[in-house]
Every structure is written in C-alpha cells, then in structure tokens.
Design a binder for these strands. Structure first.
Lengths: 181, 181
DNA sequence: CCCGCATCTTGTCGGTGACAATTTATGCTG
DNA sequence: CAGCATAAATTGTCACCGACAAGATGCGGG
C-alpha cells in the first residue's frame, strides 16, 4: 500500500505533507507541483512518478482527508452534537484536506479509494443520528450534514460576521443545538 | 455593439459572460484569461486592460454574484423558508458566480464594491428572519445561513447520496423545514 | 480637421504541467 | 557476491499561461 523509501526516503509522504502546507498557505488554486518538488528538495518531475499528475496528487489528499474525517467522526461518540462539532473541528484543523475534498473539479472523485473513504466518512457522520427519534432519517441526516458543512465552509471562507465570535467550536455548538429546539 | 473591428463594443461584458460559461464548464481553477480572450475573439492581452489581472476579473464576477443574490433573496418575500429556497436556487442556477463568491483566495474580497454587494446580500438574507420569534437572532441567522449554504455547497459538489433526489429545490425545502420542528 | 486617450495588439519573460529519454540506486536472483 | 531487472529520480523539452511593456488603432471632443 505504501511505497518504501528509496532515494529520498519517502518522497510520496513528503510531497503530500508539502502539498497540505502549501494549500494552507495559499489555497489549492495556487498549488504548483514544481514548488512541492522544490520544497522536498527533488527535481521538478519527481512528483509525476508518484502521482501521475496534479489531479492524482489531490486525489491522494482527498483520500487522506476522508479517512481522517471518518476516524475523527467515529471517535466523537454517538451524540449528534458532538459528531457535528467534530466535523467542524476537522474542517478548521485540516482546512487543506477539507477544501480539496469538496472541490471535485480538482481531483478524480470517481477513484476507487476516494469512493471507499468517502463512504466510510458518510457512515460515520450518519452514526451520529442513531440516537435521535427518527421520523425522517434521510431528511434529518441531510439537514445535519448541511448545517455543519455550511457552518464550516462559511467559517473557512471568512464569510461570517464578527458576531459569530472567534471560537468556531463554540459557535458551531450553538448553531447545531438549534436543530433540537 | 458588434464584436467586429478593432474596438469590440462591450468587451468587459463579453469577458464576464465567457468567464461564467467557462467556470460552469470546468470550474474556476481551470479558468484561463487567454481562453476567455479567444472566446471573445480578441488578443490574449485584452482582458488585462479591463480587469488588471485574473483576480480582478473574478472580483467582478463576485460583485455581480452578490448583487444578483441580494436581488433574488429580496424578491423571495419575508418567509425564511422561501428565502432559503431562493438561496439554494441561486447557487444551483448561478453556480459559477456562487463558487467564486465563496472562494476568497481567488479574488479581492476587501474590494469596496465586493464589500458593498456582500453587505446587501447579507441584509437580504437576514430579512427572512424578521418574521420568526427571536430568542437568539444572531444564532438563528447563523443556523439558517449555515443550513442553506451547506445544502447548496454539498449539492454543487455532487457530494449528496442519491437519496437526496434530483430536484434541489424540493430537497432544500424539506431540509430547511427541519429548522421549524 | 486633428489630436487626446481609452482600447486593443504584438512581443516577450518567467513559471508551470505534462511527457520522453536517461541515469541512479535498490533489492532480487542465481 | 556478482549481475541484472526495475523502481526512483533526473534532465530536457514543449505548449500554455499570467503579467508586463510598447506600439497600433480609432472614437470623440476641441
């Protein structure tokens, strides 16, 4: 599954880390394979060997993101509130992964690994709804996902007014609670 | 007004329209000023004269988007449900504008025109909350915005499972109603 | 009539993604 | 331990892109 290190050590890993850092600095649009190669101290064509092309690298970022999201959501317990907060926390703490994951024009969303990891994340998110009285489970799942995803996206975009405060977790908690009142 | 001759007639307008079309086809990341120039039948450097650079063009797209969103939301009445549906409809029908608007790394979000148009849109969205019993208006506004924005974003990203159906407006209506139960 | 000035063109530069051919290092096999 | 197959990374190249500079064009006011 993982490539063993030869010349560089583990260039694949190093490139993924450099990509995440670069995206956090200037967004996925400004990402340059050649810049990643420079950061890793290798030649400009080295990334192509591991990922094929730019979309291939971002596909790997998306897979990693969905995997970590599934793990974080799964570790947040059974309460919808906590699962929702974990979703927002993931978006804020792993903004590079999150931004790539929901930008299907940047990577190959039909990739088999992506599909599998995405399904795991979806299942974990839906697990948070198990404890709710379910009159319309599909609808409730969609509403819960929408509200946490929307909050996370707006927060990351810097679109929220100052009244939202400075702590995303606290604000998210209040917003999600609105679903239960 | 024709597209003939040395002077185009309304190149600015033509470039904006071409940009929207190109973004709808392949997303904002793949946008190329030179491609827009080709579509408009002008030289590769013509866009720079009207927009300065790529960020300048996308800034104009964002302004146009916020203006239209404000108009659409304002025309949707006073009920939160209808305003929310209008928000989702805008995102689906003007996906290029919507995608640019919430991608602050692509344009100049601190531009004066952007600020003004964005404030108009925010005010229009908040107008939908006037008819609600307000225990925590800020929190309610944030929750409403989050749920419609999240739904719209997930829909556009193609992230929703097939259970969500094929009609975004209908699904959005059901999801938003969840806020009132 | 002509000239100012916005509009558009041509030309160029550094940077980028993708691909091809080549070199280097590793692990395997005998 | 010797040699080879192959993965890993390099060099070289091409078309395209964004940005900038300098020149050409033509509309409209004096």
């Amino acid at each position: 599954m993982t490539t063993r290190g030869y010349h560089h050590g583990d260039l694949r890993r190093a490139l993924l880390d450099a990509a995440v850092q670069a995206i956090e600095e200037s967004g996925p649009a400004a990402l340059s394979l050649r810049d990643l190669a420079r950061r890793a101290g290798v030649s400009h064509a080295a990334p192509a060997h591991h990922f094929g092309d730019k979309a291939g690298l971002l596909t790997a970022v998306a897979v990693e993101g969905y995997d970590r999201l599934a793990a974080d959501l799964g570790g947040a317990g059974d309460e919808l509130l906590e699962v929702g907060v974990a979703y927002v926390r993931f978006a804020v703490d792993h903004r590079a992964h999150f931004e790539v994951m929901f930008r299907p024009d940047l990577y190959r969303g039909d990739d088999a690994e992506v599909r599998a990891a995405r399904d795991r994340a979806r299942a974990a998110l839906r697990g948070g709804l198990a404890a709710l009285p379910a009159t319309a489970p599909d609808r409730d799942a969609l509403a819960a996902w929408s509200i946490v995803h929307g909050f996370a996206t707006l927060w990351l975009a810097g679109a929220l007014p100052p009244e939202a405060g400075r702590d995303p977790e606290q604000a998210a908690r209040a917003v999600i609670r609105r679903l239960f009142e």
